[in-house]
Amino acid sequence: MAEKTIMLVCSAGMSTSLLVTKMQKAAEEKGLDFDIFATAASDANGPIEERHPDILMLGPQVKYLEQDFQERVDVPVVSINMQDYGMMNGEKVLEQAIETIG
């Protein structure tokens, strides 16, 4: 079982798939066993219940949902830095997750 589970949320679940791949590569390089996956905001409830993520990371296009998610889950909910998201900087986004969840 993975040490930590990181769930990325975007509008359709598609734009974050490349970022997930880059984050997984960065985690492997650091020797971390993380489960990192993406889902669409409209489909988020199922994965939250099934996979129990340690953190929800929202893509810039769904940042407006941050408070809604914070009220529904008892794990950190953060917005991904827009520049890191745009550059698909998996290492930086992974670092943001690690800093948040410890």
Rank of each mutant, 00 (worst) to 15 (best):
M1W: 06
K4G: 12
I6P: 00
M7P: 00
L8R: 00
V9G: 08
A12C: 06
A12L: 02
G13K: 01
S15W: 01
S15Q: 02
S15C: 05
T16L: 04
L18E: 13
L19C: 10
L19T: 08
L19E: 03
T21V: 06
T21Q: 11
K22F: 15
K25D: 13
A26W: 05
A27Y: 03
E29N: 12
I36Y: 02
F37V: 04
F37Q: 06
T39A: 10
T39Q: 06
A40S: 14
A40Q: 05
A44P: 04
N45F: 14
G46D: 15
E49D: 13
E50V: 10
R51Q: 06
R51I: 00
R51A: 02
I55M: 11
I55Q: 09
M57Q: 03
L58H: 02
Q61E: 13
V62H: 05
Y64I: 09
L65N: 13
E66V: 10
D68W: 11
Q70M: 12
E71D: 14
E71W: 04
V73T: 14
V73H: 04
V73K: 13
D74P: 01
V75C: 12
P76N: 06
V78S: 07
S79A: 14
N81K: 02
M82A: 14
M82W: 06
Q83Y: 05
D84K: 04
M87K: 15
N89L: 10
G90D: 04
E91A: 15
E91D: 15
I98Q: 14
G102E: 14
